[in-house]
Measured scan of single mutants.
Amino acid sequence: MAAAAAAGAGPEMVRGQVFDVGPRYTNLSYIGEGAYGMVCSAYDNVNKVRVAIKKISPFEHQTYCQRTLREIKILLRFRHENIIGINDIIRAPTIEQMKDVYIVQDLMETDLYKLLKTQHLSNDHICYFLYQILRGLKYIHSANVLHRDLKPSNLLLNTTCDLKICDFGLARVADPDHDHTGFLTEYVATRWYRAPEIMLNSKGYTKSIDIWSVGCILAEMLSNRPIFPGKHYLDQLNHILGILGSPSQEDLNCIINLKARNYLLSLPHKNKVPWNRLFPNADSKALDLLDKMLTFNPHKRIEVEQALAHPYLEQYYDPSDEPIAEAPFKFDMELDDLPKEKLKELIFEETARFQPGYRS
């Protein structure tokens, strides 16, 4: 834990890192770190609560700039109880001085990944967590956004079992017609939660990839272990087919990539493993919904509104309290091709509203 900075004593240090967030945020305490930044909790002297502050230093890398800009653009436009918001952003007053960006968010005690390492969940908890994931996802999908990296560590939890989806750095506007060349190379989302079509096709992607990830998360809540822990690309596919069985001819016809289709045709026939054999203690309604989410063919996979209306979630289902976005989200430009200098300018502009004396 960093010592509390005395008023006016300059930035606090946390594990050798400068955290320049005073005077409003003090009493910093280390939480963890990701690929390009550290997260601390801090005391907000204005709202009198502890908050989470993520320090991001992305400006050396085009990919990190892209992810940072995506996350900020999306989260500043989203407003939903099951999606983490941005409360404040701290950065230098000029673009030349801006080396880091500090993002202030609600402090959540833990995440689903940490929880599943230590606790076996009751059916009631599984049901409530799944409902909140789908409630947040309904809003995301209504904005025409794909999260693309749903996994237990991106689901934040607090002691009252509130759940918030975080990390929109890989999110995209849904565009089933656009052929994202190089899709697989830039697709760094965790393999275990990846839909089979991501490994088999490169053309376009749809909201059904997020539903697949939610199915993987439900299976993990039922058993405290990942359902498809593939060691590499082909191993991942083999794990999936080992449980779902061989795809039907109709399902194979959806695979545009001939090499991928021929690979699947070359494999020995596998039978589907019954879900109640894998999860003998699970609620039968939970397994019915799991089956509809972990469907090989993305066109037959359940959609988020149908999933919310499934009998497993009937005690929570309330369409009048499951809000959607006001308007579909649009990125003005494809960020993939922009140089990091341009992305830095866009991050600077996007964060201006939090600067003292800002006038829109």
Rank of each mutant, 00 (worst) to 15 (best):
residue 168 F to W: 09
residue 48 K to P: 10
residue 207 K to M: 15
residue 197 E to V: 14
residue 267 L to S: 05
residue 189 A to F: 08
residue 151 K to S: 01
residue 82 N to M: 11
residue 51 V to L: 03
residue 128 Y to Q: 10
residue 149 D to L: 11
residue 109 E to H: 07
residue 187 Y to N: 15
residue 140 I to M: 09
residue 339 P to T: 14
residue 92 A to C: 00
residue 320 S to Q: 05
residue 7 A to T: 10
residue 307 A to R: 03
residue 27 N to R: 13
residue 200 L to K: 10
residue 110 T to V: 11
residue 150 L to I: 07
residue 285 K to I: 15
residue 40 C to T: 00
residue 184 L to F: 12
residue 271 N to T: 09
residue 334 E to T: 00
residue 151 K to F: 10
residue 47 N to Q: 12
residue 182 G to K: 09
residue 142 S to K: 04
residue 31 I to K: 03
residue 79 R to D: 03
residue 306 Q to P: 04
residue 227 I to G: 03
residue 245 G to N: 02
residue 176 P to I: 07
residue 254 C to M: 00
residue 146 L to M: 11
residue 71 E to N: 00
residue 214 V to N: 12
residue 229 P to R: 07
residue 266 S to M: 04
residue 171 A to P: 08
residue 80 H to F: 05
residue 312 Y to F: 15
residue 225 R to M: 03
residue 318 D to H: 05
residue 2 A to C: 00
residue 95 I to A: 04
residue 235 D to F: 08
residue 236 Q to H: 13
residue 186 E to R: 05
residue 272 K to L: 06
residue 256 I to K: 11
residue 55 K to L: 10
residue 62 Q to P: 12
residue 217 I to N: 15
residue 312 Y to P: 04
residue 156 L to F: 06
residue 351 T to R: 03
residue 58 P to E: 02
residue 21 V to C: 12
residue 203 K to L: 13
residue 278 L to W: 04
residue 202 S to Y: 12
residue 73 K to F: 13
residue 164 K to V: 11
residue 140 I to S: 11
residue 314 E to W: 00
residue 12 E to H: 10
residue 231 K to E: 04
residue 333 M to L: 15
residue 103 I to F: 15
residue 356 P to D: 10
residue 299 H to I: 09
residue 162 D to I: 00
residue 93 P to C: 06
residue 91 R to N: 00
residue 326 E to N: 01
residue 333 M to I: 15
residue 227 I to E: 03
residue 209 I to N: 14
residue 239 H to I: 11
residue 195 A to L: 03
residue 219 A to T: 14
residue 39 V to Y: 06
residue 250 E to Q: 01
residue 184 L to G: 13
residue 217 I to G: 07
residue 98 M to C: 07
residue 61 H to V: 07
residue 77 R to I: 02
residue 338 L to S: 10
residue 106 D to R: 03
residue 195 A to V: 11
residue 52 A to F: 06
residue 135 R to T: 02
residue 46 V to N: 00
residue 159 T to K: 13
residue 90 I to D: 02
residue 220 E to I: 07
residue 60 E to N: 01
residue 257 N to Q: 11
residue 264 L to Q: 15
residue 123 N to S: 11
residue 176 P to M: 06
residue 49 V to H: 07
residue 174 A to L: 08
residue 184 L to Y: 12
residue 50 R to I: 00
residue 61 H to T: 02
residue 178 H to C: 11
residue 84 I to V: 05
residue 261 R to P: 10
residue 65 C to I: 11
residue 16 G to F: 03
residue 83 I to W: 00
residue 200 L to V: 13
residue 44 D to K: 03
residue 291 D to Q: 11
residue 87 N to M: 04
residue 179 D to L: 11
residue 72 I to L: 12
residue 116 L to E: 10
residue 136 G to Y: 01
residue 305 E to H: 01
residue 118 T to F: 04
residue 305 E to K: 14
residue 235 D to Y: 15
residue 62 Q to D: 11
residue 319 P to R: 09
residue 248 S to T: 14
